[in-house]
Nucleic acid binder design. Structure first.
Lengths: 211, 211
DNA sequence: AATATAATGTAACAATTGTTACAGAGTAAA
DNA sequence: TTTACTCTGTAACAATTGTTACATTATATT
């Protein structure tokens, strides 16, 4: 599909006319498959990604290679941007992986500054920063204030939003890796959630009931 | 002291000449005492605070009023700004309390956008966002990947930086409140850290040895 | 169909963190 | 000085989370 049409269809409510034209000129379409890497820790950001369709998971990784999921960004939310890209030459502090097949537009990072004279771009950029900040706070909330039972339930509900489906194709092991706990702990708690009527367990699939 | 002198002394390496003048005109000096509130959750941000001296702690609070310390911002670091202020009318997601007597300059929030044509201001703003983001990631790192022993040690080392002293005037109870754990847990681990030779305990004071 | 692999269930136990209770030491106030 | 209060130490126990081990079931591969 033509980039110009894509941009207009997805961003005309966000960006002013002149900016839409500029975006159309420089944006590059990228299609990624589920579980594709978009960026890893230590890599340099050269593009600002604007999500068109799909959902992208953002993870933090420690020295041992253990992961923790921070948040996901999606197209419906439109206002999507991984941070850090603003500092020229800055290395990524996070890794990003497609939750499902997704389409994004890539904008060269230097446009971040170039376009600041557009009011709608400033609103977008600062709005995105703000959304990311709020999502980081929610990640802290989960870790600092919630027990594993509630954290897993919250995680599953986020997955429902990211996948637009109450039928999650996911294994207990994957959940344990994304929440940095063990598979046995996850299985134990999922079973409890099933008994409590929150979810229904199947092989390779979890159905969320009380959404 | 004259604002103009203060601005020049603290920001001449960061801001270009014309911006220094602008800052001097609109900045308001605010002096706060240790433990003074700067902003609470739900309050509206009307000023961008620039730290001159001292240190400010930033906390997240849950519905039950439990706190968790996210990070501190200090004058030495100069690049200091609480986020969220960018969105007009946005409510604060965090609370900020002075770690010690501090001086700050208050800039009306709308200047954030007004001054974006200054290259040095853009660098400052995006640099600050980036610093805040990195500090949030460190908070997540602690919670997701570290045990209580290491989290307390890291907390104490941050306090040393914030207070520019290895002799911390702090009680076990205060630590437990800022890390959302219990006083008994803190006392137990502090005793272990003392036995391990990391710290030395006194009444109302902890000395950090291996800094 | 037989075999291998991946996913899940569960028991038993270990480690970590949280809670309750109380004692003693230091400090401040009366 | 006596009293009250805050801070710290510590034991005993509870709750949560993590680990090891192994069985069972479903799916994929040969």
């Amino acid at each position: 599909m033509d980039i110009k049409v894509l941009v207009k269809a997805n961003f005309s409510s966000l960006f002013e006319k002149a900016l839409l034209d500029e975006v159309s000129i420089v944006a590059q379409l990228k299609e990624v498959k589920k579980n594709d890497y978009l960026i890893d820790i230590g890599q340099e950001m050269t593009f600002i990604p604007l999500i068109i369709t799909g959902a992208i998971n953002v993870f933090r990784t420690d020295d041992d290679g253990d992961d923790y999921i921070l948040y996901f960004i999606e197209g419906g939310d439109t206002c999507a941007m991984t941070l850090n890209c603003c500092m020229k030459g800055a290395k990524s502090e996070i890794k990003a992986i497609a939750e499902r097949d997704s389409e994004l537009l890539l904008i060269p990072v230097h446009k971040l500054e170039d376009w600041l004279h557009y009011k709608s771009w400033r609103a977008f950029v600062f709005g995105s920063y703000n959304n990311r900040f709020v999502e980081m706070l929610e990640a802290v909330d989960s870790l600092a204030f919630m027990n594993m039972n509630d954290r897993i339930l919250k995680y599953l509900k986020n997955k429902v939003i990211a996948n637009k489906s109450e039928f999650l194709k996911i294994t207990h092991n994957t959940i344990s890796l994304e929440l940095n706990t063990s598979r046995v702990v996850v299985s134990r708690i999922l079973k409890k959630l099933e008994i409590d009527g929150n979810i229904k367990l199947h092989r390779n699939q979890i159905e969320i009931l009380d959404f």
